[in-house]
Design a protein around this nucleic acid. Structure first.
Length: 595
RNA sequence: GGGGCCGUAGUUAAGUCGGUUAUAACGCUGGCCUGUCAAGCCAGAGGGCGCGGGUUCGAGUCCCGUCGGCCCCGCCA
């Protein structure tokens, strides 16, 4: 016989499925949730009922009459309400794998609140289902306990962040989402404005200028957990809209910001069950690049880079001597036991080096018979000895060399270090390694655009003692900037800001922004800076990245409820989409087909 | 803009050198079944291989194009 759907009526949940326990034995509970799994023995019927708190086993015995008959018709993901008595499971039928495994609910009354079509995929954790399918049916994907855990942790983390920042005097203030497009930085998402045909808002890449303005307004300490938008290509750790924990403080210098924010990070990790010891270690940018090749050093393992430029400056290998003679460097790592790498391994490593801009990769296997290497014949024995001792190399090791411009040699070898560390399982799976990277250069020179660009952003203050060199040696000027790096990933970055309009104008000029352009794009800031701006600085953390690392997720998509695909599309709603001619007309936009 | 990997039942995969009617598991449907928990047993339905061309007697298999997914370079102050 078939049963119709039941109304909720006056049934109300007495507890969450996952929270029923031995203390409830003997009491009557009413539970609501989804049919997770059904084991129908014809006589006895077992249902695992699921809600956000977990699973509990329901038992329908033939004595339950209509409830038992109705239970036959239940299928996966039907929504039901049940009332029954909690009782201990019979001896030897307990399930130690679930939290409620010691008890079960003997159902006396069943309401079938809604049915479900057969699912496109089974709701299991560690499912092998294609991500596209998961994203299309995100509402089903999000029923999986593992994803629910991640989003619930996200909630707890933001709650704790708010609590910590509020306790430390930070005031949460909302800033506009419809803002002014500025040059510099990432590509803006643009929003047309009906009331001003031909003019556009930009979605904020960050609330940077607004939070500085709030310091000028005297709020002293500000924070916001806020969406930011950047119209750039996506990556596993980059979405076009992402969330920052954004903060700014007045009357402080670097160490003050770093100290308060270490407390925030400690609180966040404590929330997730991880104790950490403060203070967090610090590396200067120069040290980070020197030892790890990257400005986001993964200090969980060794395999550090060594500079051998001086040793090989006069050797017989032209690639090395040319690099040494032209302001370049020769950097090397010593891979313990790496002589066992195959020719294919070395080809792979070379390809990686090349993909990061290196011209090639020099390698040396140190064997009992001496150097086995394409470059062995170019290098004298005394230089070989000097290299070996400089790198603390011994028989069985592999040496990898990158030569050329410092930026390329360091990047290539730094990436190789990560790859080799991964291949040899040198990187601990557990644990969190934090590093502050400080003393970034203020400026970099963009060869393509033939101008200086800000390494951090154009509002970053130079170090006081370096500012005199802005005109004579701009690249040597260090910034009052700092990044927080976790396990080799940048999770936050900030700086002390320029707080005088004179210095701000000077930096714009250095960046090749004319006085007229500066006035047009940033005039409001330059003007505001003239009205009593306190020294101030701040930071922004990438909430998605922190959560991805905290939850062991490969992509930040797993800690975002509704993420976008690599083409920046929403697989569920199919955004972005076309709009009507009328809508376009209203905002004075005409779409031109690309040829 | 570029490099790499991938696309076969609802899902995950197999499919040999191009060769009969495209396999399997899980899921689904029906039946049996009173202690299961990835329940079990029996039976069954379900795809023409992302899409469009081409080569061929014959194409998941080869070629060209295209769409989509993922990873990466560039880009991301």
């Amino acid at each position: 016989m078939a049963f119709d759907l039941d109304a909720l009526g006056d049934s109300r949940r007495s507890s969450y499925c996952g929270e029923v326990n031995e203390k409830n034995i003997g009491s009557i509970v009413t539970l609501m949730g989804w049919v997770h799994r059904r084991r129908d023995h014809g006589g006895l019927i077992f249902i695992d009922l699921r809600d956000r708190a977990g699973l509990v086993q329901l038992v329908f015995s033939p004595h339950a009459g209509q409830a038992h008959e109705k239970a036959h018709e239940l299928r996966s993901e039907f929504v039901i309400a049940v009332t029954g008595v909690v009782r201990p499971r019979p001896k030897d039928t307990e399930n130690p794998d679930i939290a409620t495994g010691a008890i079960e609910v003997e159902v006396s009354s069943l309401k079938r609140l809604n049915d479900s079509a057969p699912l496109p995929f089974v709701l299991e954790d560690d499912t092998g289902v294609a991500e596209m399918t998961r994203l299309k049916y995100r509402y089903l994907d999000l029923r999986r306990p593992s994803l629910q855990k991640k989003l619930i942790l996200r909630h707890q983390v933001t709650q704790e962040a708010r609590s910590y920042l509020s306790q430390n005097g930070f005031i949460e203030i909302e800033t506009p989402v419809l803002t002014k497009s500025t040059p510099e930085g990432a590509r803006d998402f643009l929003v047309p404005c009906r009331l001003s045909p031909g003019l556009f808002f930009a979605l904020p890449q960050s609330p940077q200028l607004f939070k500085q303005i709030l310091m000028i307004s005297g709020f002293d300490r500000y924070y916001q957990i806020v969406k930011c938008f950047r119209d750039e290509d996506l990556r596993a750790d980059r979405q076009p809209e992402f969330t920052q924990i954004d903060a700014e403080m007045s009357f402080v210098d670097r160490d003050d910001v770093m100290a308060v924010m270490e407390g925030l990070v400690e609180r966040i990790f404590k929330t997730a069950g991880h104790a950490m010891s403060l203070p967090i270690q610090r590396l200067t940018y120069a040290e980070a690049i020197g030892r790890f090749g990257l400005d986001s050093p993964d200090a969980r393992f060794g395999l550090e880079l060594k500079d051998v430029t001086a040793i090989v400056a006069q050797c017989g290998f032209k690639v090395f001597t040319d690099a040494a003679a032209s302001n370049g460097v020769v950097k090397a790592i010593c891979v313990k036991g790496g002589a066992a790498f195959s020719r294919k391994d070395l080809d792979d490593l070379t390809a990686i080096a090349v993909s990061f801009g290196a011209k090639g990769l020099a390698w040396v296997k140190i064997t009992a018979e001496g150097w086995q290497s394409p470059i062995a014949k170019f290098i004298d024995d005394d230089v070989k000895k000097a290299i070996e001792s400089g790198l603390e190399a011994s028989v069985g090791d592999l040496l990898l060399f990158a030569a050329g411009k410092p930026s390329i040699a360091n990047t290539a070898l730094g990436r190789l270090r990560l790859n080799v560390g991964g291949r040899l399982n040198l990187i601990p799976k557990q644990g969190f390694n934090f590093v502050w990277v400080t003393d970034f250069p203020l400026l970099d020179y963009d060869e393509a655009e033939k101008r200086y660009v800000a390494v951090h952003h154009p509002f970053t203050a130079p170090m006081y003692e370096d500012a005199d060199r802005l005109d004579i040696d701009p690249l040597s000027v260090r910034a009052k900037a700092y990044d927080l790096v976790l396990n080799g990933t940048e999770i936050g970055g900030g700086s002390i800001r320029i707080h005088t309009s004179g210095m701000q104008s000077r930096i714009f000029e250095k960046l090749g922004i004319s006085a007229i352009d500066a006035q047009d794009r940033f005039g409001f800031l330059l003007e505001a800076l003239q009205f009593g701006t306190p020294p101030h600085g701040g930071i922004a953390f990438g909430l998605d990245r922190i959560l991805a690392i905290l939850t062991g997720s490969d992509s930040i998509r797993d800690v975002i409820a509704f993420p976008k695909t690599q083409k920046a599309a929403d697989a569920m709603s199919d955004a972005p989409s076309t709009v009507s001619a009328k809508q376009l007309e209203e905002v004075s936009i005409r779409v031109v087909k690309k040829t």
